Simulated assay, not measured.
Amino acid sequence: MNKSMMAILVASGLMLSAPVMAQPAQPSLYQQLGGKDNIRSLMDDFVQRLKADSRIGEQFKNTDAARLASQLTDQVCEATGGPCKYVGLDMKAAHAGMNITKAHFNALVEVLQASMNAKGVPFDKQLEILSMLAPMHRDVITVR
């Protein structure tokens, strides 16, 4: 084996055995949103807007706003990597018999976006939240 081949093998061996520098951990979406208090503030705003929305407010007129905001907070907190645990009904059971259409669901998403804008949630974080919640439409929409 010639010296240049030996040098390549030694260099390769050193490269393989060199420690890999750990990348700093990316903060969870929960952390990026500012934690549970900020999520609760967002959900309080969201529920108030839902109740006032002309397209879907009627569906929320008898809803206990504080309880709904609390459940949504736990749900979003858990989904974004926070320490919360949502213990409410699954989405199919929670929305059974409510006659929710795709238009209702889309209106709810628009209201959530308005709340996120009002609370200064950056657009890329809004997209992350919406992409995590979007699969729920299969269980929330009850009128096809």
Rank of each mutant, 00 (worst) to 15 (best):
M1A: 12
M21G: 06
K51G: 04
K102T: 09
E58F: 10
S12M: 15
V47Q: 06
I100Q: 00
L9E: 03
S41C: 03
Y86M: 07
K125G: 01
A7W: 07
T63N: 07
S41P: 01
A93Y: 01
Q113Y: 00
L68A: 09
L127F: 05
A134S: 13
Q71W: 06
G81H: 10
I141H: 07
N38A: 08
A107R: 04
L42Q: 04
I39G: 05
T73R: 03
M91N: 07
N106T: 11
K119W: 01
T101W: 05
Y30H: 15
P19M: 09
G88K: 10
K51E: 10
A66W: 02
L29S: 02
L108T: 15
K61R: 14
D64I: 09
L16M: 15
D139V: 01
N2G: 15
Y30G: 07
V109N: 03
V87A: 11
D64V: 08
D37T: 15
T142I: 07
E78C: 04
V140P: 13
K51H: 10
G34W: 00
A11N: 03
C84V: 05
M91G: 02
L108G: 14
N99P: 00
H137L: 02
C77W: 09
E128C: 00
V76W: 04
A52C: 04
S131C: 01
L29D: 00
S28G: 06
R144T: 08
S115E: 00
Y30C: 08
V76C: 03
M116F: 03
F105G: 06
N62W: 04
